[in-house]
Amino acid sequence: MEENKAKAKKVNSRFQPRGCTILHEDQDIIVVDKVSGLLTMGSDKERQKTAYQHLTHYVKKGNPRARNRIFIVHRLDKDTSGVLVFAKTEKAKVFLQTEWQNFSKKYVAAVEGKLAEKEGIIESYLTENSIHRVFSVTNPNKGKYAKTGYKVIRESKYFSLLEIKLFTGRKNQIRVHFAENGNPVAGDKMYGIKGMGVKRLALHAASLTIQHPHTKKEMTFETNIPAFFKQLMK
């Protein structure tokens, strides 16, 4: 299939969605680079300051009566930055969600310490407790199968920089797998080690390859590794 590597798109500053850099937009999808600290969609505590709300305002161009809208396809954790895709039609949303497991997702993460195996795969069954903390179980009937591939691309005294391939897309999958492996993602306040002095979660959705819902062409969206990661690895 034809591959299209998308770059950032210039947007009228008047309607620039806060916390989101437009990578690609057409009549079916809108793809952005989300900053760390921004929710994908609303929560009980926050409903307005989200990527969904900012992009809804963007596609309506400030007109609340406009019929233009967006549809949530997938999510990134609040503190995870990187490639995020929204659909602009219900049909596009259904297609993307149906095919989601067939798409290629690559992340970059800085984790604490050094890994004994410099390349490998982590597999487990993930479940969630009453306080929304995810953890692995051995019984396949009590959790959802999760598979994470990784490769160490750089090491420093305290951290390892990893390239990660996500084979499945479970909640907090990367964070849980590496925390349970003894190498939590740097800056992870839920699964990591407190007191490391890392201000943000060092997890970034660096690349996403999808099949376009209308043209069926393969499209790859890439972002640069945030400068924060490079500073962390010094």
Rank of each mutant, 00 (worst) to 15 (best):
E99D: 14
E99R: 15
E99V: 11
W100T: 13
Q101R: 15
Q101L: 14
Q101K: 15
Q101G: 10
F103D: 10
F103E: 13
S104T: 13
S104L: 15
S104C: 07
K105M: 10
K105S: 11
K105P: 08
K106A: 05
K106H: 14
Y107C: 10
Y107H: 11
V108R: 12
V108F: 04
A109L: 07
A109T: 08
A109E: 04
A109P: 08
A109M: 04
A109S: 09
A110I: 01
A110E: 02
A110T: 06
V111W: 02
V111Y: 03
V111K: 06
E112T: 12
G113T: 04
G113V: 01
G113C: 06
K114A: 10
K114F: 00
L115N: 07
A116L: 12
A116S: 12
A116I: 06
E117Q: 13
K118V: 02
E119N: 05
E119L: 01
G120Y: 00
G120S: 04
G120H: 01
G120L: 02
I122P: 02
I122F: 11
I122E: 02
E123N: 12
S124P: 01
Y125F: 15
Y125K: 05
Y125S: 04
Y125R: 07
Y125W: 08
L126C: 06
T127K: 07
T127A: 05
T127G: 06
E128G: 02
E128R: 14
N129T: 01
N129L: 03
S130E: 09
I131S: 08
I131Q: 09
R133C: 03
R133L: 10
R133N: 03
V134Y: 00
V134G: 02
V134F: 00
V134N: 03
F135A: 09
F135R: 07
F135V: 07
S136E: 03
V137P: 08
V137E: 08
T138S: 09
T138V: 09
N139H: 09
N139C: 11
N139V: 06
N139M: 07
N139W: 05
P140Q: 12
P140I: 11
P140A: 10
P140L: 08
N141E: 14
K142V: 01
K142G: 09
G143V: 03
K144Q: 14
K144I: 11
Y145P: 12
Y145D: 08
A146G: 11
K147M: 13
K147R: 15
K147Y: 04
K147C: 13
K147D: 04
